[in-house]
Design a protein around this nucleic acid. Structure first.
Lengths: 213, 213
DNA sequence: CGGAATAGTAGACTGAGTACAAAATTTGGT
DNA sequence: ACCAAATTTTGTACTCAGTCTACTATTCCG
């Protein structure tokens, strides 16, 4: 079994350290007001090293992207045989929420995260690009599975739109000052409603969301 | 009535001229190989003037974006009372196709356009950002109409995913070398199939796309 | 230990985008 | 035709992200 080895462990530590230093500076002073040279200096490392680990400045802040991609790929690939993707994805999001995972969006920390994100067009742009990469990933995986590229891309794009909406909803509510615990509780219905619409289509009339129950 | 006036007419002419010069250079030599300074020089204008008209270099190439937003907004706003958005949007895309409009995607010119687009990550990123702006626009218009922001965002994002897929499909087929006329003819079904899935959901089994008929 | 990989450094360079103040042009009124 | 205000354009200098290259330090493994 591939024991990481000193070299690999040092690399991961350096990577984390740089990202943490950078995030700290971004949160305190805003994304645009911090230069990469400053980050390098504060992290005790050369500017080139920063770019070695993070090809773009924005990636210093949005550094969980690869993990997310890997997880979403696993959700699709490892689902029970014959189970529709939407079902697996719905379950996954319920689990994220139940586990209090930051990516569920219904978590205290998103307030600060979102504020920094919104302060910089460059960061927003990169985030949108990452969402696009989710769609590309899902397209690829589904195409491998079914062989029908058009249908796969359509489903992948719709699925991604659903995922994005599910994330955006609690985040904007929390940023708007709503109670985190309340948002968290109602998020169960948000997830179910979004996937209901995805599975049954926007052409069907449905109950309004907060109709009690 | 506000006759344009010399000043305004000159501005529009200058804008067009700069965009045309830039596009010409991009097509001939690739997006990244052309500097803004060069474009300015070739257009007989200062670099600052270029940035006056186009805030980002990428906007020199993707300069129809505002027009597109305005049209999509009109499609939603001016649809017959009570008609579902998806129906209006489906009709609009059939009309684009029938009119041989470049934005239908099923047109000879997309080959060159797409090649340049794909050659540059910066351009691709900007295009994705523009697609995101479509979703934001639709969210805003639908929210104004219904008052339900969550539902509006969900529908807007799904609608945008559908639109994107509808555009991407003929483009990638044409780039792959398929016959433009064939793609154009089959695009009618692509549009209908995509909107069927949007309206009826991905949970329903449907006929495969090319089952004849 | 010692040579091969690999990680990190220094510093110069490119090019997008901004700041600012001076110069040119259009406008509308007289 | 002329003038003054408003607006557009320009030149210049600047900042900063990101790249390139040649050099040094560290880790790996036999």
């Amino acid at each position: 079994m591939a024991q990481p080895g000193l070299r690999e462990r040092k690399k991961q530590a350096t990577r984390r350290m740089i990202a943490d230093v950078a995030t700290g500076l971004f949160v305190r002073r805003g994304f645009d007001a911090v230069t990469v040279a400053e980050i390098a200096e504060a992290a005790g490392v050369s500017k080139m090293t920063v770019f070695n680990y993070f090809p773009r400045k924005e990636d210093l802040y949005l550094d969980r992207h690869l993990d997310r991609l890997r997880e979403l790929e696993a959700v699709v690939r490892d689902r029970p045989a014959g189970e529709p993707v939407a079902v697996a994805m719905r379950r996954y999001h319920h689990e994220l929420l139940a586990a209090g995972h930051p990516l569920s969006g219904a978590v205290e920390g998103v307030r600060g995260f979102w504020t920094v994100l919104h302060s910089s067009p460059a960061l927003m742009s990169r985030m949108v690009e990452q969402e696009h990469e989710i769609a590309k990933l899902l397209t690829r995986v589904l195409t491998e599975e079914t062989g029908d590229e058009f249908q796969s891309r359509l489903v992948a794009n719709l699925l991604t739109a659903t995922i994005i909406t599910i994330w955006h909803t609690p985040v904007s509510r929390i940023v708007a000052g709503e109670d985190v615990e309340l948002v968290r509780r109602e998020q169960v219905q948000v997830i179910d409603h979004a996937f209901d619409v995805l599975e049954r289509g926007i052409g069907r009339r449905r109950e309004p969301l907060h109709s009690g129950g």
